[in-house]
Design a protein around this nucleic acid. Sequence first.
RNA 1: GGCGCCGUAGCCAAGUGGUCAGGCAACGGUUUGCAAAACCGUCAUACAGCGGUUCGAAUCCGCUCGGCGCCUCCA
Length: 497
Amino acid sequence: MALLLHDTLSSKKKPFEPLDPSNARLYVCGPTVYDRAHLGHARCYVVYDVLVRHLRASGQKVTYARNITDIDDKILKRSHEQGESPGALTERMTAAFHADMAALGNLPPDLEPKVSDHIPQIHDLITALIDKGAAYASDGDVYFRVHAFPAYGKLSHRPVEALVEGASGRVDEAETRKKEAPEDFALWKGAPEAEWGWASPWGHGRPGWHVECSAMSMCHLGPTLDLHGGGLDLVFPHHENEIAQSEAATGCSYARHWMHNGFVEVDRTKMSKSLGNFFTVQEIVRRHEAEALRFAMLSVHYRSPLNLDWELDADGQVTKFPLFEDAERRVEYVYTTRQRLAAIEPARIVATGEVHEALTGFPQALKAALDDDLNTAAGIAESSEFLKQVNELVESSKRKKGSVARAAVDAATRGFEALAVELGLGAQSPDDVLGRIRARRATALGVDGAKVEEALLARRAARDAKDFARADALRDELVAMGVELMDGAAGTSWRIP
RNA sequence: GGCGCCGUAGCCAAGUGGUCAGGCAACGGUUUGCAAAACCGUCAUACAGCGGUUCGAAUCCGCUCGGCGCCUCCA
Protein backbone atom coordinates (compact mmCIF):
# COMPACT_ATOMS: atom_id res chain seq x y z
CA MET A 1 0.00 0.00 0.00
CA ALA A 2 1.52 3.25 -1.06
CA LEU A 3 -1.52 5.46 -1.17
CA LEU A 4 -0.97 9.07 -0.18
CA LEU A 5 -4.12 10.97 0.72
CA HIS A 6 -4.61 14.52 1.86
CA ASP A 7 -5.77 14.58 5.47
CA THR A 8 -7.93 17.48 6.60
CA LEU A 9 -6.91 17.16 10.25
CA SER A 10 -3.17 17.53 9.62
CA SER A 11 -3.64 19.61 6.46
CA LYS A 12 -1.17 17.53 4.50
CA LYS A 13 -0.81 14.47 2.37
CA LYS A 14 0.01 11.40 4.38
CA PRO A 15 0.06 7.66 3.79
CA PHE A 16 -3.25 5.90 4.26
CA GLU A 17 -2.52 3.19 6.79
CA PRO A 18 -5.37 1.16 8.29
CA LEU A 19 -5.07 0.31 11.96
CA ASP A 20 -5.83 -3.30 11.08
CA PRO A 21 -4.03 -3.95 7.79
CA SER A 22 -6.39 -6.82 7.02
CA ASN A 23 -9.44 -4.54 6.97
CA ALA A 24 -9.61 -0.84 6.19
CA ARG A 25 -12.72 0.67 7.77
CA LEU A 26 -14.16 3.61 5.87
CA TYR A 27 -17.14 5.71 6.79
CA VAL A 28 -18.60 8.26 4.43
CA CYS A 29 -21.47 10.54 5.33
CA GLY A 30 -24.43 9.59 3.19
CA PRO A 31 -27.38 11.64 2.07
CA THR A 32 -30.31 12.99 4.02
CA VAL A 33 -33.10 11.42 2.02
CA TYR A 34 -35.67 14.18 1.56
CA ASP A 35 -34.92 14.97 -2.09
CA ARG A 36 -33.23 13.57 -5.18
CA ALA A 37 -29.43 13.39 -5.24
CA HIS A 38 -27.84 16.37 -6.98
CA LEU A 39 -24.49 16.73 -8.69
CA GLY A 40 -22.76 17.52 -5.41
CA HIS A 41 -23.79 14.13 -4.08
CA ALA A 42 -22.81 12.53 -7.37
CA ARG A 43 -19.31 13.93 -7.17
CA CYS A 44 -18.83 12.98 -3.56
CA TYR A 45 -19.95 9.38 -3.91
CA VAL A 46 -18.11 8.85 -7.18
CA VAL A 47 -14.92 10.02 -5.47
CA TYR A 48 -15.32 7.65 -2.53
CA ASP A 49 -16.29 4.85 -4.88
CA VAL A 50 -12.99 5.32 -6.69
CA LEU A 51 -11.16 5.37 -3.37
CA VAL A 52 -12.71 2.03 -2.43
CA ARG A 53 -12.09 0.57 -5.88
CA HIS A 54 -8.48 1.69 -5.82
CA LEU A 55 -7.83 0.28 -2.36
CA ARG A 56 -9.33 -3.05 -3.40
CA ALA A 57 -7.41 -3.07 -6.67
CA SER A 58 -4.27 -2.58 -4.58
CA GLY A 59 -5.10 -5.70 -2.57
CA GLN A 60 -6.53 -3.94 0.46
CA LYS A 61 -9.67 -5.39 2.02
CA VAL A 62 -12.13 -2.62 2.74
CA THR A 63 -15.28 -2.28 4.76
CA TYR A 64 -17.10 0.69 3.31
CA ALA A 65 -19.97 2.17 5.29
CA ARG A 66 -22.18 4.94 3.98
CA ASN A 67 -25.21 5.87 6.01
CA ILE A 68 -28.69 6.95 5.09
CA THR A 69 -29.94 9.81 7.23
CA ASP A 70 -33.66 9.18 7.41
CA ILE A 71 -34.44 11.32 10.44
CA ASP A 72 -34.11 15.07 10.05
CA ASP A 73 -36.17 18.24 10.32
CA LYS A 74 -35.98 18.76 6.56
CA ILE A 75 -37.55 15.35 6.03
CA LEU A 76 -40.39 16.28 8.35
CA LYS A 77 -40.92 19.59 6.57
CA ARG A 78 -40.82 18.04 3.12
CA SER A 79 -43.15 15.21 4.07
CA HIS A 80 -45.72 17.76 5.25
CA GLU A 81 -45.41 19.63 1.96
CA GLN A 82 -45.80 16.41 -0.02
CA GLY A 83 -48.62 15.13 2.13
CA GLU A 84 -46.94 11.81 2.82
CA SER A 85 -45.48 10.28 5.93
CA PRO A 86 -41.79 10.85 6.68
CA GLY A 87 -41.22 7.11 6.36
CA ALA A 88 -42.84 6.96 2.93
CA LEU A 89 -40.77 9.94 1.77
CA THR A 90 -37.47 8.52 3.00
CA GLU A 91 -38.23 5.11 1.55
CA ARG A 92 -39.01 6.63 -1.82
CA MET A 93 -35.93 8.87 -1.79
CA THR A 94 -33.67 6.05 -0.62
CA ALA A 95 -34.78 3.96 -3.58
CA ALA A 96 -34.18 6.90 -5.90
CA PHE A 97 -30.75 7.43 -4.37
CA HIS A 98 -29.85 3.80 -4.96
CA ALA A 99 -30.98 4.09 -8.57
CA ASP A 100 -28.87 7.23 -9.07
CA MET A 101 -25.81 5.60 -7.51
CA ALA A 102 -26.22 2.52 -9.70
CA ALA A 103 -26.54 4.70 -12.79
CA LEU A 104 -23.29 6.42 -11.86
CA GLY A 105 -21.58 3.05 -11.62
CA ASN A 106 -20.93 3.30 -7.89
CA LEU A 107 -20.55 -0.01 -6.10
CA PRO A 108 -22.97 -0.41 -3.18
CA PRO A 109 -21.31 0.17 0.20
CA ASP A 110 -20.76 -2.86 2.41
CA LEU A 111 -22.86 -1.29 5.14
CA GLU A 112 -25.64 1.22 4.75
CA PRO A 113 -26.89 1.99 8.25
CA LYS A 114 -30.05 4.03 8.74
CA VAL A 115 -30.52 6.40 11.63
CA SER A 116 -33.97 5.00 12.35
CA ASP A 117 -32.41 1.59 13.02
CA HIS A 118 -29.92 3.00 15.52
CA ILE A 119 -31.98 4.91 18.06
CA PRO A 120 -30.74 2.69 20.96
CA GLN A 121 -27.10 3.28 20.00
CA ILE A 122 -27.77 7.02 19.85
CA HIS A 123 -29.36 6.91 23.30
CA ASP A 124 -26.35 5.00 24.64
CA LEU A 125 -23.91 7.51 23.20
CA ILE A 126 -25.82 10.47 24.62
CA THR A 127 -26.10 8.77 28.01
CA ALA A 128 -22.36 8.14 28.06
CA LEU A 129 -21.69 11.77 27.26
CA ILE A 130 -24.02 12.98 30.02
CA ASP A 131 -22.35 10.59 32.48
CA LYS A 132 -18.97 12.01 31.60
CA GLY A 133 -20.13 15.58 31.99
CA ALA A 134 -19.73 16.28 28.28
CA ALA A 135 -23.45 16.77 27.71
CA TYR A 136 -26.46 18.05 29.61
CA ALA A 137 -30.20 17.68 29.40
CA SER A 138 -32.15 20.90 29.18
CA ASP A 139 -35.92 21.08 28.96
CA GLY A 140 -36.38 17.99 26.79
CA ASP A 141 -33.27 18.60 24.70
CA VAL A 142 -29.74 17.34 25.24
CA TYR A 143 -26.73 19.44 24.29
CA PHE A 144 -23.06 18.72 23.93
CA ARG A 145 -20.96 20.91 26.20
CA VAL A 146 -18.32 22.15 23.80
CA HIS A 147 -16.17 23.61 26.58
CA ALA A 148 -15.82 20.12 28.02
CA PHE A 149 -13.84 19.09 24.93
CA PRO A 150 -10.67 21.21 24.75
CA ALA A 151 -9.63 19.90 21.35
CA TYR A 152 -12.80 21.30 19.77
CA GLY A 153 -11.94 23.00 16.50
CA LYS A 154 -8.94 20.83 15.63
CA LEU A 155 -10.40 19.56 12.36
CA SER A 156 -11.63 22.87 10.99
CA HIS A 157 -8.58 24.63 12.45
CA ARG A 158 -10.46 27.27 14.34
CA PRO A 159 -10.55 27.80 18.06
CA VAL A 160 -13.94 28.03 19.75
CA GLU A 161 -13.27 31.71 20.43
CA ALA A 162 -13.03 32.31 16.69
CA LEU A 163 -16.59 31.24 16.08
CA VAL A 164 -18.77 34.21 15.36
CA GLU A 165 -22.16 33.53 16.84
CA GLY A 166 -24.85 33.70 14.21
CA ALA A 167 -22.40 34.35 11.39
CA SER A 168 -24.41 32.05 9.18
CA GLY A 169 -27.56 34.02 9.92
CA ARG A 170 -29.35 31.05 11.42
CA VAL A 171 -30.00 31.39 15.12
CA ASP A 172 -32.92 29.70 16.80
CA GLU A 173 -33.72 31.85 19.82
CA ALA A 174 -35.74 29.20 21.61
CA GLU A 175 -32.81 26.86 21.32
CA THR A 176 -30.30 29.47 22.43
CA ARG A 177 -32.20 29.88 25.69
CA LYS A 178 -31.77 26.19 26.48
CA LYS A 179 -28.03 26.17 25.88
CA GLU A 180 -25.29 26.88 28.39
CA ALA A 181 -23.15 28.36 25.62
CA PRO A 182 -23.96 29.36 22.05
CA GLU A 183 -21.46 26.90 20.55
CA ASP A 184 -23.08 23.90 22.25
CA PHE A 185 -24.93 21.68 19.83
CA ALA A 186 -27.97 19.42 20.11
CA LEU A 187 -27.65 15.68 20.66
CA TRP A 188 -31.36 15.17 21.19
CA LYS A 189 -34.19 17.53 20.34
CA GLY A 190 -37.47 17.25 22.16
CA ALA A 191 -40.65 17.29 20.10
CA PRO A 192 -44.40 17.34 20.86
CA GLU A 193 -45.77 13.86 21.52
CA ALA A 194 -47.94 14.01 18.39
CA GLU A 195 -44.98 14.83 16.16
CA TRP A 196 -42.77 12.34 14.33
CA GLY A 197 -40.27 11.10 16.90
CA TRP A 198 -39.00 8.47 19.30
CA ALA A 199 -39.18 7.94 23.02
CA SER A 200 -35.98 8.64 24.95
CA PRO A 201 -34.77 9.02 28.54
CA TRP A 202 -35.20 12.78 27.97
CA GLY A 203 -38.65 12.57 26.48
CA HIS A 204 -40.17 12.24 23.03
CA GLY A 205 -38.04 13.71 20.27
CA ARG A 206 -35.50 13.15 17.54
CA PRO A 207 -31.72 12.80 17.45
CA GLY A 208 -29.63 15.93 16.96
CA TRP A 209 -27.92 16.74 13.72
CA HIS A 210 -24.54 15.05 14.15
CA VAL A 211 -24.90 12.33 16.71
CA GLU A 212 -26.24 9.73 14.30
CA CYS A 213 -23.01 9.41 12.35
CA SER A 214 -20.95 8.89 15.48
CA ALA A 215 -23.36 6.31 16.83
CA MET A 216 -23.63 4.39 13.57
CA SER A 217 -19.98 4.50 12.59
CA MET A 218 -18.75 3.36 15.99
CA CYS A 219 -21.46 0.73 16.26
CA HIS A 220 -20.41 -0.88 12.98
CA LEU A 221 -16.73 -0.04 12.64
CA GLY A 222 -15.48 0.49 16.20
CA PRO A 223 -14.27 3.60 18.05
CA THR A 224 -11.47 4.42 15.63
CA LEU A 225 -12.19 4.64 11.90
CA ASP A 226 -9.40 4.40 9.37
CA LEU A 227 -10.95 7.05 7.21
CA HIS A 228 -13.93 9.31 7.48
CA GLY A 229 -15.03 11.24 4.45
CA GLY A 230 -17.61 13.56 3.03
CA GLY A 231 -18.06 16.85 1.29
CA LEU A 232 -16.02 19.89 2.25
CA ASP A 233 -19.13 21.46 3.73
CA LEU A 234 -19.19 18.80 6.42
CA VAL A 235 -15.86 19.78 7.96
CA PHE A 236 -17.58 22.30 10.15
CA PRO A 237 -19.71 21.74 12.06
CA HIS A 238 -20.69 18.18 11.21
CA HIS A 239 -17.36 16.41 11.41
CA GLU A 240 -15.99 18.71 14.08
CA ASN A 241 -18.97 17.78 16.22
CA GLU A 242 -18.62 14.11 15.41
CA ILE A 243 -15.05 14.21 16.67
CA ALA A 244 -16.09 16.02 19.84
CA GLN A 245 -18.95 13.71 20.78
CA SER A 246 -17.14 10.52 19.76
CA GLU A 247 -13.82 11.24 21.41
CA ALA A 248 -15.42 12.66 24.52
CA ALA A 249 -17.41 9.42 24.84
CA THR A 250 -14.70 6.86 24.05
CA GLY A 251 -11.41 8.58 24.79
CA CYS A 252 -10.17 7.09 21.52
CA SER A 253 -9.06 8.95 18.41
CA TYR A 254 -12.17 8.93 16.23
CA ALA A 255 -10.69 8.77 12.73
CA ARG A 256 -7.14 8.29 11.55
CA HIS A 257 -7.69 10.04 8.25
CA TRP A 258 -10.13 12.75 7.22
CA MET A 259 -10.95 13.18 3.56
CA HIS A 260 -13.11 15.91 2.03
CA ASN A 261 -14.07 16.49 -1.57
CA GLY A 262 -14.53 19.93 -3.14
CA PHE A 263 -17.81 21.42 -4.21
CA VAL A 264 -19.63 21.30 -7.46
CA GLU A 265 -20.21 24.94 -8.34
CA VAL A 266 -22.61 26.72 -10.60
CA ASP A 267 -21.55 30.15 -11.81
CA ARG A 268 -18.60 29.82 -9.44
CA THR A 269 -20.99 29.47 -6.54
CA LYS A 270 -21.42 26.34 -4.48
CA MET A 271 -24.26 24.13 -5.63
CA SER A 272 -26.55 23.43 -2.73
CA LYS A 273 -30.11 22.56 -2.03
CA SER A 274 -30.58 25.59 0.18
CA LEU A 275 -29.52 27.93 -2.62
CA GLY A 276 -31.73 26.06 -5.06
CA ASN A 277 -29.06 26.22 -7.76
CA PHE A 278 -28.76 22.49 -8.17
CA PHE A 279 -29.24 19.98 -10.92
CA THR A 280 -30.25 16.48 -9.95
CA VAL A 281 -28.50 13.38 -11.16
CA GLN A 282 -31.81 12.36 -12.68
CA GLU A 283 -32.00 15.53 -14.82
CA ILE A 284 -28.50 15.10 -16.18
CA VAL A 285 -28.89 11.39 -16.82
CA ARG A 286 -31.96 12.09 -18.91
CA ARG A 287 -29.83 14.19 -21.25
CA HIS A 288 -26.54 12.33 -21.08
CA GLU A 289 -25.15 8.87 -20.63
CA ALA A 290 -24.67 8.40 -16.88
CA GLU A 291 -21.09 7.32 -17.40
CA ALA A 292 -20.38 10.73 -18.93
CA LEU A 293 -21.38 12.27 -15.62
CA ARG A 294 -19.02 9.91 -13.83
CA PHE A 295 -16.26 10.69 -16.31
CA ALA A 296 -16.75 14.43 -15.84
CA MET A 297 -16.56 14.08 -12.07
CA LEU A 298 -13.29 12.19 -12.36
CA SER A 299 -11.74 14.61 -14.83
CA VAL A 300 -11.15 17.13 -12.04
CA HIS A 301 -9.08 16.45 -8.92
CA TYR A 302 -11.42 15.66 -6.05
CA ARG A 303 -10.27 18.52 -3.83
CA SER A 304 -10.66 21.25 -6.46
CA PRO A 305 -13.94 22.96 -7.16
CA LEU A 306 -15.77 21.62 -10.19
CA ASN A 307 -17.51 24.46 -11.96
CA LEU A 308 -20.50 23.63 -14.10
CA ASP A 309 -21.18 25.79 -17.14
CA TRP A 310 -24.16 25.68 -19.40
CA GLU A 311 -25.67 27.39 -22.40
CA LEU A 312 -29.16 28.82 -22.38
CA ASP A 313 -31.69 29.40 -25.11
CA ALA A 314 -33.74 32.59 -25.50
CA ASP A 315 -36.28 31.33 -22.94
CA GLY A 316 -33.63 30.75 -20.34
CA GLN A 317 -33.81 26.97 -20.69
CA VAL A 318 -30.58 25.02 -20.45
CA THR A 319 -29.64 23.78 -23.89
CA LYS A 320 -26.16 22.44 -23.20
CA PHE A 321 -23.83 21.31 -20.47
CA PRO A 322 -20.48 21.54 -22.29
CA LEU A 323 -18.72 19.61 -19.53
CA PHE A 324 -21.03 16.63 -19.90
CA GLU A 325 -21.08 16.83 -23.70
CA ASP A 326 -17.29 16.68 -23.74
CA ALA A 327 -17.28 13.85 -21.25
CA GLU A 328 -19.84 11.92 -23.26
CA ARG A 329 -17.64 12.19 -26.35
CA ARG A 330 -14.76 10.77 -24.35
CA VAL A 331 -16.97 7.96 -23.08
CA GLU A 332 -17.91 7.19 -26.69
CA TYR A 333 -14.23 7.15 -27.54
CA VAL A 334 -13.50 4.69 -24.73
CA TYR A 335 -16.23 2.30 -25.85
CA THR A 336 -15.56 2.69 -29.55
CA THR A 337 -11.92 1.89 -28.90
CA ARG A 338 -12.85 -1.18 -26.88
CA GLN A 339 -15.15 -2.29 -29.66
CA ARG A 340 -12.43 -1.80 -32.27
CA LEU A 341 -9.93 -3.77 -30.18
CA ALA A 342 -12.38 -6.66 -29.90
CA ALA A 343 -12.93 -6.55 -33.67
CA ILE A 344 -9.29 -7.08 -34.65
CA GLU A 345 -9.24 -10.02 -37.02
CA PRO A 346 -7.80 -13.09 -35.23
CA ALA A 347 -5.73 -13.92 -38.30
CA ARG A 348 -3.91 -10.59 -37.87
CA ILE A 349 -2.79 -11.44 -34.35
CA VAL A 350 0.62 -13.09 -34.34
CA ALA A 351 2.87 -14.58 -31.69
CA THR A 352 5.65 -12.01 -31.74
CA GLY A 353 6.03 -8.33 -32.38
CA GLU A 354 6.40 -4.98 -30.73
CA VAL A 355 4.35 -4.01 -27.75
CA HIS A 356 4.10 -0.29 -27.07
CA GLU A 357 4.97 0.85 -23.57
CA ALA A 358 1.76 2.90 -23.36
CA LEU A 359 -0.15 -0.39 -23.51
CA THR A 360 1.86 -2.40 -21.01
CA GLY A 361 2.52 0.50 -18.68
CA PHE A 362 -1.00 1.84 -18.39
CA PRO A 363 -2.29 -0.15 -15.40
CA GLN A 364 0.78 0.81 -13.39
CA ALA A 365 0.60 4.45 -14.53
CA LEU A 366 -3.05 4.58 -13.52
CA LYS A 367 -2.27 3.09 -10.14
CA ALA A 368 0.56 5.57 -9.62
CA ALA A 369 -1.75 8.49 -10.42
CA LEU A 370 -4.36 7.26 -7.95
CA ASP A 371 -1.74 6.53 -5.30
CA ASP A 372 -0.92 10.23 -5.37
CA ASP A 373 -3.93 11.62 -3.53
CA LEU A 374 -6.39 9.92 -5.85
CA ASN A 375 -5.38 11.97 -8.87
CA THR A 376 -8.12 10.79 -11.20
CA ALA A 377 -7.47 13.66 -13.63
CA ALA A 378 -3.92 12.42 -14.13
CA GLY A 379 -5.25 8.88 -14.41
CA ILE A 380 -7.64 9.93 -17.16
CA ALA A 381 -4.78 11.68 -18.94
CA GLU A 382 -2.89 8.37 -18.78
CA SER A 383 -5.91 6.62 -20.20
CA SER A 384 -5.88 8.98 -23.19
CA GLU A 385 -2.38 7.89 -24.06
CA PHE A 386 -3.40 4.29 -23.60
CA LEU A 387 -6.51 4.55 -25.76
CA LYS A 388 -4.62 6.34 -28.50
CA GLN A 389 -2.16 3.47 -28.56
CA VAL A 390 -4.97 0.89 -28.69
CA ASN A 391 -6.34 2.68 -31.74
CA GLU A 392 -2.89 2.69 -33.27
CA LEU A 393 -2.78 -1.05 -32.67
CA VAL A 394 -6.12 -1.43 -34.42
CA GLU A 395 -4.87 0.64 -37.36
CA SER A 396 -1.72 -1.49 -37.58
CA SER A 397 -3.83 -4.60 -37.84
CA LYS A 398 -5.75 -3.10 -40.76
CA ARG A 399 -2.79 -2.04 -42.87
CA LYS A 400 -1.85 -4.07 -45.89
CA LYS A 401 -0.19 -7.25 -44.64
CA GLY A 402 -0.40 -5.73 -41.15
CA SER A 403 -0.21 -7.81 -38.02
CA VAL A 404 -0.10 -7.16 -34.30
CA ALA A 405 1.47 -9.08 -31.43
CA ARG A 406 -0.69 -11.25 -29.20
CA ALA A 407 1.07 -9.65 -26.23
CA ALA A 408 0.00 -6.20 -27.42
CA VAL A 409 -3.65 -7.25 -27.70
CA ASP A 410 -3.46 -8.84 -24.25
CA ALA A 411 -1.88 -5.73 -22.77
CA ALA A 412 -4.64 -3.61 -24.29
CA THR A 413 -7.25 -5.92 -22.79
CA ARG A 414 -5.62 -5.66 -19.38
CA GLY A 415 -5.57 -1.88 -19.73
CA PHE A 416 -9.33 -1.82 -20.18
CA GLU A 417 -9.69 -4.07 -17.15
CA ALA A 418 -7.66 -1.62 -15.08
CA LEU A 419 -9.82 1.25 -16.28
CA ALA A 420 -12.94 -0.64 -15.28
CA VAL A 421 -11.66 -1.90 -11.95
CA GLU A 422 -9.96 1.29 -10.75
CA LEU A 423 -12.19 4.02 -12.13
CA GLY A 424 -15.39 2.17 -13.01
CA LEU A 425 -15.13 3.41 -16.60
CA GLY A 426 -15.59 1.43 -19.80
CA ALA A 427 -17.00 -1.54 -17.96
CA GLN A 428 -20.40 -1.75 -19.65
CA SER A 429 -21.33 -3.36 -22.94
CA PRO A 430 -20.06 -1.07 -25.72
CA ASP A 431 -23.11 -1.85 -27.87
CA ASP A 432 -25.46 -0.87 -25.07
CA VAL A 433 -23.68 2.37 -24.22
CA LEU A 434 -23.11 3.49 -27.80
CA GLY A 435 -26.63 2.44 -28.72
CA ARG A 436 -28.16 4.49 -25.92
CA ILE A 437 -26.06 7.53 -26.78
CA ARG A 438 -27.09 7.34 -30.42
CA ALA A 439 -30.74 6.76 -29.60
CA ARG A 440 -30.82 9.69 -27.17
CA ARG A 441 -29.27 12.03 -29.73
CA ALA A 442 -31.49 10.72 -32.51
CA THR A 443 -34.55 11.47 -30.40
CA ALA A 444 -33.25 14.96 -29.62
CA LEU A 445 -32.72 15.68 -33.32
CA GLY A 446 -35.85 13.92 -34.50
CA VAL A 447 -33.85 11.42 -36.53
CA ASP A 448 -35.69 8.21 -37.45
CA GLY A 449 -33.30 5.27 -37.29
CA ALA A 450 -35.34 3.17 -39.72
CA LYS A 451 -35.20 5.96 -42.31
CA VAL A 452 -31.44 6.17 -41.86
CA GLU A 453 -31.10 2.44 -42.44
CA GLU A 454 -33.20 2.75 -45.60
CA ALA A 455 -30.97 5.51 -46.92
CA LEU A 456 -27.92 3.41 -46.12
CA LEU A 457 -29.26 0.55 -48.27
CA ALA A 458 -29.92 2.90 -51.16
CA ARG A 459 -26.45 4.35 -50.81
CA ARG A 460 -24.96 0.85 -50.69
CA ALA A 461 -26.61 0.08 -54.01
CA ALA A 462 -25.36 3.32 -55.54
CA ARG A 463 -21.83 2.66 -54.35
CA ASP A 464 -21.92 -0.90 -55.69
CA ALA A 465 -22.92 0.61 -59.03
CA LYS A 466 -20.04 3.10 -58.71
CA ASP A 467 -22.61 5.87 -58.81
CA PHE A 468 -20.67 8.00 -56.34
CA ALA A 469 -22.61 11.16 -57.13
CA ARG A 470 -25.82 9.46 -56.04
CA ALA A 471 -24.11 7.90 -52.99
CA ASP A 472 -22.68 11.24 -51.91
CA ALA A 473 -26.02 12.96 -52.37
CA LEU A 474 -27.64 10.41 -50.05
CA ARG A 475 -24.89 10.91 -47.52
CA ASP A 476 -25.23 14.70 -47.72
CA GLU A 477 -28.92 14.35 -46.89
CA LEU A 478 -28.06 12.33 -43.81
CA VAL A 479 -25.32 14.73 -42.78
CA ALA A 480 -27.83 17.55 -43.04
CA MET A 481 -30.02 15.65 -40.58
CA GLY A 482 -27.07 15.33 -38.21
CA VAL A 483 -26.15 11.77 -39.08
CA GLU A 484 -22.54 10.84 -39.73
CA LEU A 485 -21.59 7.77 -41.76
CA MET A 486 -18.59 5.59 -41.32
CA ASP A 487 -17.71 3.30 -44.21
CA GLY A 488 -15.75 0.25 -43.16
CA ALA A 489 -14.74 -3.14 -44.43
CA ALA A 490 -17.70 -4.70 -42.64
CA GLY A 491 -20.18 -2.21 -44.04
CA THR A 492 -21.36 1.27 -43.16
CA SER A 493 -22.27 2.27 -39.64
CA TRP A 494 -23.75 5.56 -38.50
CA ARG A 495 -23.60 7.77 -35.50
CA ILE A 496 -24.76 11.16 -34.37
CA PRO A 497 -21.82 13.28 -33.30
C1' G B 1 -13.53 40.28 11.74
C1' G B 2 -11.29 34.98 11.97
C1' C B 3 -9.84 30.53 9.25
C1' G B 4 -9.08 28.43 4.45
C1' C B 5 -9.11 27.61 -0.92
C1' C B 6 -8.49 29.04 -6.02
C1' G B 7 -6.20 32.05 -10.41
C1' U B 8 -1.98 27.34 -15.78
C1' A B 9 -2.46 28.63 -23.37
C1' G B 10 -9.04 30.19 -27.21
C1' C B 11 -11.78 26.76 -23.47
C1' C B 12 -11.52 22.53 -19.70
C1' A B 13 -7.63 20.61 -16.64
C1' A B 14 -2.88 17.83 -14.21
C1' G B 15 1.76 19.30 -12.25
C1' U B 16 4.02 22.38 -7.07
C1' G B 17 11.99 23.66 -7.33
C1' G B 18 15.52 21.27 -12.88
C1' U B 19 13.67 17.15 -20.51
C1' C B 20 6.41 15.18 -21.84
C1' A B 21 0.75 16.31 -18.69
C1' G B 22 -3.97 15.23 -20.96
C1' G B 23 -8.60 16.71 -23.36
C1' C B 24 -11.83 20.08 -26.41
C1' A B 25 -11.76 23.62 -30.41
C1' A B 26 -8.99 25.32 -34.78
C1' C B 27 -5.50 24.36 -38.74
C1' G B 28 -2.12 21.04 -41.66
C1' G B 29 -0.94 15.72 -42.89
C1' U B 30 -1.61 10.01 -43.22
C1' U B 31 -5.71 6.98 -44.53
C1' U B 32 -10.30 7.03 -47.71
C1' G B 33 -13.65 6.52 -54.43
C1' C B 34 -14.85 11.13 -51.59
C1' A B 35 -15.92 11.50 -46.45
C1' A B 36 -16.39 10.22 -41.27
C1' A B 37 -13.74 7.67 -37.56
C1' A B 38 -8.64 6.68 -36.20
C1' C B 39 -3.54 8.18 -36.03
C1' C B 40 0.58 12.06 -36.65
C1' G B 41 1.84 17.30 -36.43
C1' U B 42 0.91 22.67 -35.27
C1' C B 43 -1.39 26.00 -31.78
C1' A B 44 2.26 25.55 -26.54
C1' U B 45 9.35 28.94 -24.66
C1' A B 46 1.23 28.88 -20.61
C1' C B 47 1.32 29.35 -15.25
C1' A B 48 -3.03 36.69 -12.19
C1' G B 49 0.60 41.07 -11.02
C1' C B 50 4.98 42.97 -8.49
C1' G B 51 9.15 41.99 -5.49
C1' G B 52 12.39 38.34 -2.95
C1' U B 53 15.15 33.47 -2.06
C1' U B 54 17.94 30.15 -5.51
C1' C B 55 22.88 28.17 -10.19
C1' G B 56 17.63 27.48 -11.58
C1' A B 57 10.71 29.43 -9.59
C1' A B 58 4.28 27.88 -12.53
C1' U B 59 6.28 25.44 -7.98
C1' C B 60 9.26 28.37 -1.97
C1' C B 61 8.61 33.45 0.75
C1' G B 62 6.29 38.51 0.97
C1' C B 63 2.90 41.99 -0.84
C1' U B 64 -1.06 43.32 -4.33
C1' C B 65 -5.29 42.28 -7.53
C1' G B 66 -9.40 39.09 -8.84
C1' G B 67 -12.84 34.95 -7.57
C1' C B 68 -14.80 31.62 -3.88
C1' G B 69 -15.80 28.72 0.67
C1' C B 70 -16.65 28.08 6.04
C1' C B 71 -17.68 30.53 10.91
C1' U B 72 -23.76 25.38 13.90
C1' C B 73 -29.08 23.60 7.03
C1' C B 74 -25.66 21.23 3.31
C1' A B 75 -22.09 15.97 -0.38
